[in-house]
Design a protein around this nucleic acid. Structure first.
Lengths: 129, 129
DNA sequence: CCATGTGTATCAATACAACAATACACATGG
DNA sequence: CCATGTGTATTGTTGTATTGATACACATGG
C-alpha cells in the first residue's frame, strides 16, 4: 500500500489516528488490503500528510492490538496473515450500522422523506460523487 | 418541549453540549419545534439526564448565538420568532450531506453493494428500527 | 559492520469537556 | 412584595485525549 492511498483530513474533528485505524480496518475487511500486504512506514505517511510519526504509530499499534497488522521487525508493518480479511457481507454491514442509525435519526428529526435521502445516497454510492 | 424528549448519550464520544445543539438545530429546521415553543429549563434538562446545568446552558447559548433560540428573561429559552424554521427540503438535505459522504466512503472501502446499504437504510427510515 | 530504515517508549504540552459551587440579574406570579 | 424560577458569569478542578519532540532498540542489507 502507498501513503498517498490513505485519506487523511487533518482539520476534521475526528482524531487523525482514528481516521487511519478505521480506514485500514475497513480496507482489510473489504479485502482491498490482503494479508501480507506491506503498509507504508510511519515516517512515510507522516511526511506525506504532514503529521507526526507518533500519530501514525499509534494507529498502527492499535491495529496490531486488534490482530489486523503485524510487526515485521526492521521492515515495517504488514497486514497480518491471521487477519480476518475479506469478511462476509453481513459482518461488513455491521461496521456501518452506527452510522446508519445516526443518519436515520438525523433524517427523522429533519422530517426528510426517505425517498429523497435514499436517492441521494444511491447517487453517492454509484457515482462516487 | 419536554426534557424527556431530548436524546442524550452521556457515554458518546460526541460532547454533550454539541449533541443538544445539533439535535435542537434539526428539530427546528424540520419544523417540529415551531417559533415560540418554550424549551425546558437548564435545570430541568440537567436533572432529568443527570448532567451539569452549565453544560445545558452552554448549548442554549450557542443556539442563541445562531439566532435559533431567544432568551425570555425570567421565563426561559424559546425558539426564536425570527428562527429560520421548517426550512425547505433542499436546505435540510444539506445538513446531512457530510454524514452521507462519510457513509458512502465507508461503504466503498468495505466493498459493500449499494443495494444492500440502501435496503438497510430504508428499513431504518421507515420502521425507525 | 554499520548506515539506514523500521516501530515505539517516554515525557511534555496543550486543549477540551464536564463538573462543582457560587453568586448574580432578572421577570414572573401568587 | 417577594419567594421562586429563569439563564449566566465566574472560578477552579478533574479527567481525558490528542499531538508532538526526543531518544532508543532493533533488523535489514549493501
Amino acid at each position: 500500500m502507498d501513503a498517498s492511498s490513505l485519506t487523511i483530513a487533518p482539520g476534521a474533528p475526528e482524531p487523525i489516528y482514528r481516521q487511519i485505524v478505521e480506514q485500514v480496518r475497513r480496507l482489510i475487511a473489504g479485502g482491498q488490503l490482503p494479508p501480507g500486504e506491506l503498509m507504508p512506514s510511519v515516517r512515510e505517511v507522516a511526511g506525506f500528510h504532514a503529521i507526526n510519526p507518533m500519530t501514525v504509530s499509534r494507529a498502527y499499534s492499535l491495529l496490531e492490538g486488534e490482530g489486523l497488522l503485524e510487526r515485521l521487525r526492521g521492515t515495517g508493518m504488514a497486514v497480518a496473515q491471521s487477519a480476518r480479511s475479506a469478511r462476509p457481507e453481513a459482518e461488513r454491514m455491521s461496521l456501518i450500522e452506527p452510522r446508519l442509525h445516526e443518519l436515520a435519526r438525523a433524517a427523522r428529526e429533519l422530517e426528510l422523506p426517505a425517498s429523497r435521502v435514499l436517492r441521494r445516497l444511491d447517487q453517492l454510492l454509484e457515482n462516487g460523487e
